[in-house]
């Protein structure tokens, strides 16, 4: 496949970025999107040019590092996958592919296609945990949890923190991410004691870091590689409203 790539290049946080156009030839349709970028970077290094910086780690869809806005969609044209799981056969020979970084106030660009997603860690630090004593291992069966609850908590826990929800949302809202983190704990008895404080603290942090409010467009759910459901956002709303009723 021969392709034209339109890629956002930005030297550092402060620099003014711009789109650069690259041509790339002989790409196998069976290669992954990131492998295609590897080929481009080898070509750039050979030409003594600066390679394109992009995030990746596991390349098997579980770490959430890869983060590209490809042809107008987070993680590209496929649904329910991360960028590293996207293959070039989804494109056609001769296509022009526009590649941009996540765009959000809460995710400033560090370099080229890499954005700073520390905001997610800060939201987690605000309340995405439970406080337990270490060293005394408890009997796993001592706390009984209904199967449906544990399944739902597990579904919420599948969030890999990739940020596609924020990237795709017209409001750059982090609600799906925060909802999955609140939900996975709110559903389980171990999460109950800190539920009130957690919902308040995490929502306050999310607002403070410049993410927008959810207007229920549902775009996040469609683009989320882990299919996190909007039902978790309803639970977050519920948790937050109830938390505010309590003194």
């Amino acid at each position: 496949m021969d392709l034209t790539l339109k890629i956002w290049r930005q030297a550092d946080r402060k620099a003014k970025g711009r789109f650069e156009i690259y041509s790339i030839k002989n790409i196998s349709p069976d290669s992954s999107f990131l492998e295609m970028l590897d080929v481009l970077n080898e070509q750039l290094v050979r030409d003594n040019a600066e390679p394109v910086a992009f995030d990746h780690d596991c390349r098997e869809g579980i770490c959430g590092m890869c983060s590209l806005f490809i042809n107008g969609r987070a993680h590209g044209p496929d649904e329910s996958i991360t960028t590293c799981q996207l293959h070039m056969r989804k494109f056609r020979d001769g296509d022009t592919i526009v590649i941009e970084p996540w765009r959000a106030c809460g995710f400033p660009v560090i370099k080229d296609l890499i954005v700073d997603r520390n905001a997610f860690d800060k939201i987690l630090q605000a309340g995405g945990f439970i406080s337990v004593n270490t060293n005394s291992v408890q009997d796993g069966n001592a706390i009984i949890i209904p199967k449906e609850k544990s399944d739902e908590a597990m579904d919420a826990a599948a969030c890999i923190g990739c940020g596609a929800c924020v990237a795709t949302c017209k409001n750059s809202s982090a609600m799906l991410f925060v909802a999955s983190k609140v939900s996975q704990l709110a559903l389980l008895p171990q999460g109950k004691p800190e539920a009130v404080r957690r919902a308040k603290a995490m929502v306050a942090k999310m607002d403070e870091l410049g993410f927008g409010g959810c207007t229920n467009t549902g775009a996040c759910e469609v683009e989320c590689p882990k299919n996190i459901s909007l039902a978790h956002i309803a639970r977050l709303n519920r948790e937050f409203l109830l938390a505010n009723l309590k003194p």
Binding site: E100, G218, V222
Partner: peptide
């Protein structure tokens, strides 16, 4: 208004129609 401030730099290309009404 607040939501508009949450994305200071816009995408060059965005296909919103695929994921929301």
């Amino acid at each position: 208004l607040q939501n508009q401030q949450a994305r200071p730099v816009d995408y060059k290309k965005q296909h919103s129609g695929n994921s929301s009404k």
